[in-house]
Structure formats: structure tokens, C-alpha cells
Design a protein around this nucleic acid. Structure first.
Length: 510
RNA sequence: GCCCCGUUCGUCUAGUUGGCCUAGGACGCAAGAUUUUCAUUCUUGAAAUCAGGGGUUCGAAUCCCCUACGGGGUACCA
């Protein structure tokens, strides 16, 4: 029977949400929506020592910004709650005990310190210590100790953990939606702790219990879980839940743009791009990590960029809206190898999306930048300026560099441009032009009339256009950059243009 | 060390049932065109002996084996 598709994104609130995590969530979302399924947010906070203040809110806020909506979960609710594992704490012990009873798990009384000593000792002999089918025979657990001894220890309240008991020499098979068939031998696997001495389950137990209880149909998660997947498969078997075991899909990781290893927080700071969706301030160190949102990325661009990092549609289309992605996404087109993050391409995506944003929206954003520079300008004016310059921008914050001359007269003139554009006689000629232009009637067609006049002036004096227009541009803009000269004249107006020309003619002497 | 996963232009990738691949696209890069400037845009180009070596086959990027390299895991972290 076809099961309803239900997937979950299950971060642990140990800090800001990593961009790789966002991609995992995105793929879950796309898969769920494509199949008319549910997308669930579960918070996995079973490690109390790593809890970070504000991380949970950060996660919720991030998805809000990205526009990925959960159907169920923390902050939303749903029939299968609670969705935070610390709120489900009481539930897990029963399942751990069930496994002990069935002979799939056992109590272990070894302290972390004791195990640490063993690990070090093995290491010094260039061997690897593992709590497994061989070593458990002589370690302190309910398999090696007598029933009475175990009961005594339990009654005395001695700290214990519950470990999974891997059968000896058994091949464990799993079919991964991305990797295909994977086989591992149980003798190589260690008896993972399922239930910790602090009364909390580990990831492995909580994950399987919750996925089962929440009727999860597909587990789409990072590749770092692939090695422990055989344990998860065995847990389903041990509980007798094989029939409803979810299908697994292990995603390749996001890698550093340079060098090796997976993308980390440090790389972002080092290479100048965000690794987190939103800016994050570490509550303890107060260290600030940049976010996509604060860096000026549009959520749609981030989504699109992430979707194409390790997946492609098989067509040559690269720009996709969320809904288009939902329609066309497929797990079997996810690549198997890690992907290096590409900052340039990320910028390109943002450029594409910035062009689609309405001029008025852009203008409103840009007005905030202007206010910070103590510049007041009408929305209408800013709107037309934005319309002219946005195609040269990747981000809203680029607008200023491409339009500053609309808001202030040049204070200096670019040296290189001067050398190239300002020849002997230029100043004198511009004086004449300014005089003649001041006669032109100052109405809505002023700029066009001015252009017409300039053309005539150029041909009458047998000059070439570049000489004149470029020197005017230099006078008005202060550099060789800028949009079409007539458009600049239109927006700046007659008085301002003439004044800037006169000032330049005066200031610049060769 | 051991286990698992991977390896096509600098980067993201197409290539999925071997032949239409003299390996395609995108980002970036270079050149040219347009723009009187800068940028955009457009066109063209450079860029992968398909990690290397062995097989299988009439034929392999595509199948098999080995090696190398990369990634992940190896916690009472997730």
C-alpha cells in the first residue's frame, strides 16, 4: 500500500542553521510537496550539553525568511507532537527497555572515563577500541555480569547506559535512494549507546522512535549519517517495525570552495560569504557570523542556488521558482558527490532575481541606504534611478555605487578619466556649452532638446561626439561610469547639469 | 588504522538502458559587437586524453577489477 509521504527536517539547536542544513531541508520540502506530503520540523535537542540559547528561534526564523513552510512541528503543532525531543523525554526509556527485554540491547556500567582510558591504551598500541561483540564480553555490562550483579547495580542507582547489541557477523543491507544498495557487516559495527546515563536517548534511538511514531515515510538527510544507517535499519528490525521503515536518501555534503573538507563556519568568514541564512550572534562569545539575508541575498535566489548545488533538472534551465522546483525535483537526479560552494554563481543567481524585483520595492529598500547617508529623495525619483541602474547590480547595496552621482555632485574627478577625456580646450568649450544650454527652455523635454543642441554643436564645430559627451559625463559624474547621458540629464535637471559643468570647467585646469 | 561513499572543463554539472560524445550547458575567464563612457546584453573562444591502470566488447565517460586521490564515519554529539 502506498504510504502518505511524510518527511522531517530534524536539526539540533546547537547554533545557527548551516547552509548545508538549509539545503537538506529544501530537498525534504520539495520532495514532500511534490508528493502531496507533509513537511515536519522536529527539534532534536537530546544533547543538553550542547544546547545554545536562541538557536531554535533562529531555525524557525530562517525558514520563515526562506519561505519554506512546515506543515507540522515546533511552533506549528500537529497530531504527532510534541515535536521537540526534550519534551518527549519520558517516552524513550520504555523503548530502550523493550529492546533490553527482547535481547537487542543491554545495560552497560562502564564510565566514560574508563572507556577513555581503554581508547587511549588501544591507540598507543595502534589499535582501535570499539565496544562491540568482542569487547563487550569483558566489559561491565548485563551481558558479562550475572543477573544478581546487574540488579544490585541497578538498585544502587549506579549510572548506566543502554547499548544496542549488534549480532555477530551478519550482513546488513540497505537501499539508499541516492547511493543504491549498501552492505555492511555487523561485526565491524560498535554497540552504540541508545540511552544515556542522563536519562536522554541518543540520536539513534530518538530518531527511530520518533520517525516511527510520526509515520515518517522518507528520511532525507546528510551523508554523515550513512555509516550509522545500518544501526538504524537494525533498530527497525529489533522493534519489529520493518514494514513501515522509511526509505533513506543520504545527501552529499557541501564542501569548502577551496581546499578540502566540508563547509564550515570559518570558511565563510575567511572567504567572504555567508554560511548561514541569517546573521547570527553567538550568545557567549558575541562573535557575529554573516547571513544571506543581511548580505543582501533574496530568499528566492538562495533557494534556487541551493537547489542547483548537487541537483539539476536535466534540462538547461537554471532559474526556477520554488513551485517550479516542486514540480520538477527528483531524488534520483541528486548527484552522489560533494559540491563545492561557488560564491560567483551565488552572486549571479542573486543578480537574476534582483532584476525581477519591482522597481518600487527596490526603491524602498534603497531609500533606507540613502537615509543612512543622510540623503532625502522622493520615491518617484529613486524609482526611476533604480530602474536605470539595477541591471548592473547583484545586490541592493550595489545600487549606491552605481547611482551616487544622482545624489551628489562629484567632489573630485577620476584621474585616469581626466587623462583620457580632458584635453586642452575642453574647459573653455564646456563653458560655452553651459552658456548655450542655459538658454534651452526648462521643461519636460529639456534633456532631449539639450541632446539635440549638443549634436548640432558637435557637427557645426566638426568635433567628434566622444570628445564632448565624455567630457560632459566626466563633469557630471566625475568618472567614465554611469548610465545613458540623456537619462542622467533628465533626472538631474537643467540647473544641476549646467552647474556641474561650470564647476568642472572651473576646477579642472590643465 | 578500520568501515562506508565518491572521482567528467577552475567551479556546479549533462551524459542515466554502452555507439548520435570530434564530451553539452551554466558560473567564472578571454576576445569581438552594441552602448559616444562604465556596466548590462549579444556573439565567439580557451578550458575536461571523462583520476590512473588493467580488462569485457566490433565499440566504454558509460560494465568489471585494481591503484591513487577526495569526502564521511569511527563519542553517554547530532
Amino acid at each position: 500500500m502506498e504510504r502518505k509521504v511524510r518527511v522531517r527536517f530534524a536539526p539540533s539547536p546547537t547554533g545557527p542553521l548551516h547552509i548545508g542544513g538549509v539545503r537538506t531541508a529544501l530537498y525534504n520540502y520539495l520532495f514532500a510537496k511534490q508528493n502531496g506530503g507533509d513537511f515536519i520540523l522536529r527539534i532534536e535537542d537530546t544533547d543538553q550539553t550542547r544546547f545554545v540559547e536562541g538557536a531554535e528561534d533562529y531555525i524557525v526564523e530562517s525558514f520563515k525568511w526562506l519561505g519554506l513552510k512546515f506543515d507540522e512541528g515546533v511552533g506549528i503543532g500537529g497530531e504527532y507532537g510534541p515535536y521537540k525531543q526534550s519534551d518527549r523525554k519520558e517516552l524513550y526509556k520504555k523503548y530502550a527497555l523493550e529492546l533490553v527485554e527482547k535481547g537487542w540491547a543491554y545495560y552497560a556500567f562502564d564510565t566514560p572515563e574508563e572507556l577513555d582510558v581503554l581508547r587511549k591504551q588501544y591507540e598507543s598500541e595502534k589499535k582501535n577500541f570499539q565496544y562491540d561483540c568482542n569487547t563487550r564480553k569483558w566489559l561491565r555490562n548485563s551481558l558479562s555480569l550475572s543477573k544478581e550483579e546487574v540488579e544490585d547495580l541497578l538498585n544502587q542507582g549506579v549510572a548506566y547506559v543502554i547499548r544496542f547489541k549488534f549480532p555477530e557477523n551478519e550482513d546488513i543491507h540497505l537501499d539508499d535512494l541516492i547511493r543504491g544498495h549498501v552492505k555492511m557487516n555487523s561485526s565491524l559495527l560498535d554497540d552504540k549507546v541508545l540511552y544515556k546515563s542522563d536519562g536522554m536517548p541518543t540520536y539513534h534511538l530518538a530518531n527511530i522512535v520518533d520517525d516511527h511514531l510520526m509515520c515518517i515515510s522518507h528520511v532525507i538527510r546528510g551523508e554523515e549519517w550513512l555509516p550509522s544507517c545500518p544501526l538504524h535499519v537494525m533498530l527497525y528490525k529489533a522493534f519489529g517495525w520493518e514494514d513501515t521503515m522509511p526509505q533513506f536518501a543520504h545527501l552529499p555534503l557541501l564542501l569548502k570552495p577551496d581546499g578540502n573538507g566540508k563547509l564550515s563556519k570559518r570558511d565563510g568568514d575567511r572567504l567572504g560569504f555567508p554560511v548561514f541564512p541569517l546573521q547570527w550572534t553567538d550568545p557567549k562569545s558575541k562573535e557575529i557570523s554573516s547571513g544571506y539575508r543581511e548580505s543582501g541575498y533574496l530568499p528566492e535566489a538562495v533557494i534556487n542556488m541551493l537547489a542547483l548545488l548537487g541537483w539539476n533538472s536535466g534540462t538547461e534551465q537554471e532559474i526556477f521558482s520554488l513551485n517550479e522546483l516542486v514540480a520538477i525535483f527528483s531524488i534520483d537526479r541528486i548527484s552522489k558527490h560533494g559540491a563545492k560552494f561557488d560564491l560567483e554563481k551565488a552572486k549571479w543567481f542573486n543578480h537574476q532575481y534582483l532584476q525581477k524585483v519591482d522597481d518600487e520595492v527596490l526603491a524602498q529598500e534603497f531609500i533606507k541606504d540613502l537615509k543612512e547617508r543622510n540623503i532625502d529623495a522622493s520615491l518617484d525619483k529613486v524609482k526611476s534611478i533604480v530602474g536605470l541602474v539595477k541591471e548592473r547590480c547583484n545586490f541592493v547595496k550595489d545600487i549606491w555605487d552605481n547611482s551616487d552621482y544622482f545624489f551628489m555632485a562629484p567632489e573630485s574627478y577620476a584621474e585616469k578619466a581626466l587623462k583620457k577625456r580632458w584635453k586642452e580646450g575642453t574647459s573653455e568649450r564646456l563653458c560655452i556649452i553651459a552658456e548655450r544650454m542655459s538658454v534651452i527652455e526648462d521643461n519636460f523635454s529639456w534633456a532631449d532638446d539639450a541632446e539635440e543642441f549638443l549634436m548640432k554643436y558637435i557637427s557645426e564645430n566638426e568635433l567628434n561626439m566622444g570628445q564632448i559627451m565624455n567630457s560632459i559625463r566626466l563633469a557630471v559624474v566625475g568618472d567614465t561610469k554611469g548610465v545613458n547621458m540623456v537619462d542622467i540629464m533628465k533626472i538631474l535637471g537643467k540647473q544641476e547639469i549646467i552647474s556641474r559643468i561650470k564647476i568642472a570647467a572651473e576646477k579642472i585646469s590643465l
